[in-house]
Design a protein around this nucleic acid. Structure first.
Length: 853
RNA sequence: GCCCGAGUGGCGGAAUGGUAGACGCAGCGGAUUCAAAAUCCGCCGGUAGCAAUAUCGUGUCGGUUCGAGUCCGACCUCGGGCACCA
């Protein structure tokens, strides 16, 4: 007997599936369809064990759904535009295109030996002109429908390299290559009008029943609907009124100053004549553009000397300050500050010695050790639904919730005519312009006579030129000698192409739709889209909870408006599952220069939880760290396949941790997985050669049907680790079973079927060893027989005052009175009661008995 | 700074508000073997006890409940996102 030989088994069955076109997605018959999709990878170079986990989960679902009678679509492609390709070209020459397609070839070659049931015939990369040409065509459709526009927006500017930087290229406020202090600079950029859909994208979240609550909550907060008051502060000095928006109009009597953004038109106007203002504005331009950088930056202010009137008291004059923490993008770019109830405003007021006035305090009785902010306490910011005691109410009573007070304040302002209740959203329009080469060119032309004109559709795709270099910073499209020069699509006179390319989030916002008809001459094919959409199960990382998923939801709506998707597909992902990362310990020592040295796992011997190098030096073990090349803790799936086979890798990434949590890769765990699969193989071989004697067939059947039931439920609920635990238990049962050959053969074939979504090669091998008909991949999923699932008796734990003290065994349909009688007769209970009657007796049928004494 | 999660034995983890620790790893003991590997069997949260058993125990502190890993509040630590990483 040759043993469990993955190097023979795995290629054999992969070939069999290929030849039988087992995983080719078809619309045949009257079967229901099922579309399962994992977030497609960026072609970084090699596949990562995290990819293996992600695609294995999808494959389990895909194979399971196929065996329950669905037409399954399970495609794969590559999110192939983006910065790393340009960085590689800058670092080591070559061309982003060659680098990217080379990586794709490598990664496909690495994925195939893993035996995923994918329809490879549908594969594409977003950098294929056939794909991005269709994207350009849709961009033009979006323009026609008014979903795209241009406006100014801030970017990170490196003043030394004279180039725009991505947020990740700004490190501690400095450019990553030049080290120069980064500035914020305005450029005219293209935007998608996602904000037109704010309300709709928010409301529709309620219908996403099979999305994780946390993702829905994150999206709701991101869209950020708020109700507030918009009103104007009249100028004392005869200038224009300053419009402000506030979500806390109830704190108006606590106003300390009026703040405007450094980018507010008034600030810009002042800067023209006032050098100090101009200098302050320049100071505020320093640093990166991220919200985090802005929030964490030191609060800076500049007193303009201007004064405005308080709307409720014309004699009350408030100073106007320019403050760096006020965003022009949100509200009106101007606020009134209430330091008593906002920590940022309080920090600012203390720094610049501005007044602090509390408008409310904790409700009576809850005051305790409360210190008012004006007396040195922190800003008092209770949740809005909490009742507080108003010291300076502007409307309504003294004790109110913040919510009620805000409503009352808006009512008063509207009645008196000095303000309006306004609903605003935090969600900003989607800026898609990138000043980079390796992306989808924006298909427009700038003409001196006609302005901005979309390219003619028959001229699409607007292809990236191949003859570019990356030896100097900046966008190669900008300095290409001829690429920019084109005739105006409208008047035919010489004009210039747009040199900005699209954000790569655009590429990934509709690939799922393209998979339904990947070679269509239009972005989608309606027949195919109607049949396959929506994605029934989408699987990916939690890091995409907001941007990618929100942009895709917007895109599906925009595509529907332009006739590229049916209305039923405007929420493209019916169910979402977010999986955790695969982590691995880091082995670290400290070098002679005091800097950390990271060691490869194969160089470290593990003993009793400690790690040692070959020379005996003990290494520090940092567990569960994100895999990173610089930390030498990356596990290469190809090494695992080579050593143990694909099924072991697949089994392990599913077995050790719940799928939504991170899993730590350990060599011990991989070995254990491999041992178990070898054991199943031996068990099958034994049974195939075994004899017919035995009894207890009934007991084995019972366990088998329980296993079918448990594993089916486990797969359906993404409890893969729990399903695998049941499979271990059932394997143990089968190995020890004294049943006859027929019953054991049936059991091992069922075991193979239950394992087949996770370890498909081994499952096929066992199936064929036992003389199963056809491929296990085509076999119908086993169904549990309910008659085997019911137990005749149940064991009930007995608690005394909530602590387990004993147990009784009763028949499964014993009524409450009978259980009570048996419980009271129990020795432990009788001892504890000592003749007294229990205070209370709780019987939860089939669950527990609790005697309260 | 803001938003969202997660914390259970030596380790990964299981547990519709109802027996905390299923299953796996490591460890310990045994069988098999000339020996080893492989395999098979048994034990395995802490403390006390020969044992029966008692007692403590799910990041920390409090609360709701007959009963809390699970629900509520505060805090600590770690992770994800913050609009140009993908």
């Amino acid at each position: 007997m040759s043993g469990y030989d993955t190097k023979t088994i795995e290629p054999k069955w992969q070939k069999a599936w290929d030849e039988a076109l087992t995983f080719r997605a078809t619309r045949s018959g009257d079967k229901p369809k099922y579309y399962v999709l994992e977030m497609f990878p960026y072609p970084s170079g090699r596949i990562h064990i995290g990819h293996v986990r992600n695609y294995t989960m999808g494959d389990v679902i895909a194979r399971y759904k196929k065996s329950t009678g669905h037409n399954v679509l399970h495609p794969m492609g590559f999110d192939a535009f983006g910065m790393p390709a340009e960085n590689a070209a800058m670092a080591s020459g070559g061309h982003p295109k060659d680098w990217t397609y080379g990586n794709i070839d490598t990664m496909v070659a690495q994925m195939k030996p893993l035996g995923f049931g994918l329809d490879w015939s549908r594969m594409f990369a977003t950098c294929d002109p056939e794909y991005y040409g269709q994207q350009q065509s849709m961009f033009i459709d979006f323009m026609e429908k008014g979903l795209v526009y241009r406006k100014n927006a801030t970017v990170n500017w490196d003043p030394v390299d004279m180039t725009v930087l991505a947020n990740e290229q700004v490190i501690d406020g400095k450019g990553w290559r030049s080290g120069a202090e980064v500035e914020r600079r305005e450029l005219t950029q293209w935007f998608f009008k996602i904000s037109d859909f704010s309300e709709e994208l928010l409301d529709a979240i309620d219908g996403l029943d099979d999305w994780p609550e946390k993702v829905k909550l994150m999206q709701r907060n991101w869209i950020g609907k708020s109700r507030g008051l918009q009103f104007a502060f009249e100028s004392v000095d005869g200038g224009d009124p300053i419009e402000v928006y506030t979500t806390r109009p109830d704190t108006l009597m606590g106003a300390s100053f009026v703040g405007i953004s450094p980018d507010h038109p008034l600030a810009k106007e002042l800067a023209e004549t006032n050098e100090a203002v101009a200098a302050f504005r320049a100071e505020c331009q320093k640093g990166g553009t991220t919200e985090e950088a802005l929030e964490k930056a030191e609060k800076l202010g500049f007193d303009t000397g201007l004064k405005v009137k308080h709307p409720l008291d014309p004699t009350w004059e408030l100073p106007v300050w320019i403050a760096n923490f006020i965003l022009m993008d949100y509200g009106t770019g101007a606020i009134f500050a209430c330091p008593a109830h906002d920590q940022r405003d309080l920090d600012f007021s203390r720094k610049y010695d501005l007044p602090v006035i509390s408008t409310f305090a904790p409700a009576m009785g809850e005051a305790g050790t409360f210190i008012l902010p004006e007396d040195g306490g922190p800003a008092y910011v209770p949740p809005k639904p909490e009742t507080v005691r108003y010291l300076l109410p502007i409307a309504g009573g003294e004790a109110m919730t913040g919510e009620a007070a805000v409503d009352a304040a808006i009512d008063r302002a509207e009645k008196e005519g000095w303000g309006t209740g306004v609903t605003k959203f935090r969600l900003r329009d989607w800026g898609l312009s990138r000043q980079r080469y390796w992306g989808c060119p924006i298909p427009v032309v700038h003409c001196d006579a006609c302005g901005v004109v979309p390219e003619k559709k028959e001229n699409l795709p607007v292809q990236l030129p191949d003859d570019v270099t990356f030896d100097v910073p900046g966008n190669p499209l900008d300095r290409h000698p001829t690429w920019r020069d084109v005739p105006c699509p409208s008047c035919g006179k010489p004009a210039r192409r747009e040199t900005d390319t699209m954000d790569t989030f655009v590429d990934s916002s509709w690939y799922f739709a393209r998979f339904t008809a990947p070679r269509a001459e239009t972005p989608t094919n309606m027949t195919e889209a109607e049949y396959w959409m929506n994605v029934d199960q989408y699987i990916g990382g939690i890091e995409h909870a907001i941007l990618h998923l929100l942009y895709s939801r917007f895109f599906a709506r925009a595509m529907h408006i332009c006739g590229h998707l049916p209305e039923s597909a405007i929420e493209p992902f019916d169910a979402l599952f977010t999986q955790g990362m695969v982590t691995h310990a880091i082995y670290k020592t400290t070098g002679p220069d005091g800097r950390p040295v990271y060691h490869y796992p194969e160089d470290v011997d593990l003993k009793d939880g400690k790690g040692f190098l070959k020379d005996g030096t003990e290494v520090e073990i940092i567990p569960s760290a994100k895999m990173s090349k610089s930390k030498n803790n990356v596990v290469d799936p190809m090494d695992i396949i080579d050593r143990y086979g694909a099924d072991t890798a697949r089994w392990f990434v599913l077995s050790d941790s719940p799928p939504e949590r991170d899993v730590e890769w350990t060599s011990a765990g991989a070995e254990a997985a491999n041992k178990h699969l070898a054991r199943v193989w031996r068990l099958s071989a034994d049974i195939a050669e075994g004899n017919d004697t035995g009894s207890d067939d009934e007991a084995l059947l019972k366990e088998m049907h329980k296993a079918i039931d448990d594993v089916t439920k486990g797969i359906e609920s993404f409890g893969f680790n729990a399903a695998i635990a049941k499979l271990y238990a059932f394997t143990n049962t089968l190995a020890r079973a004294k049943a006859g050959r027929a019953a054991r053969r049936q059991a091992v074939m069922t075991l193979a079927q239950l394992m087949s979504p996770m370890t498909p090669h081994l499952a096929e091998e066992v199936w064929s060893m036992q003389g199963g008909e056809g491929l296990i991949a085509d076999a119908a999923w086993p169904v549990a027989d309910a008659t085997y699932l019911v137990e005749d008796t149940v064991t009930l734990p007995i608690q005394i005052n909530g602590k387990r003290r004993s147990e009784i065994t009763v028949s499964k349909d014993a009524d409450k009175a009978e259980v009570e009688k048996l419980a009271l007769a129990d020795d432990a209970v009788a001892r504890a009661l000592d003749g007294r009657a229990p205070k209370k007796l709780i019987v939860v049928p089939g669950r527990i008995v609790n005697v309260v004494i």
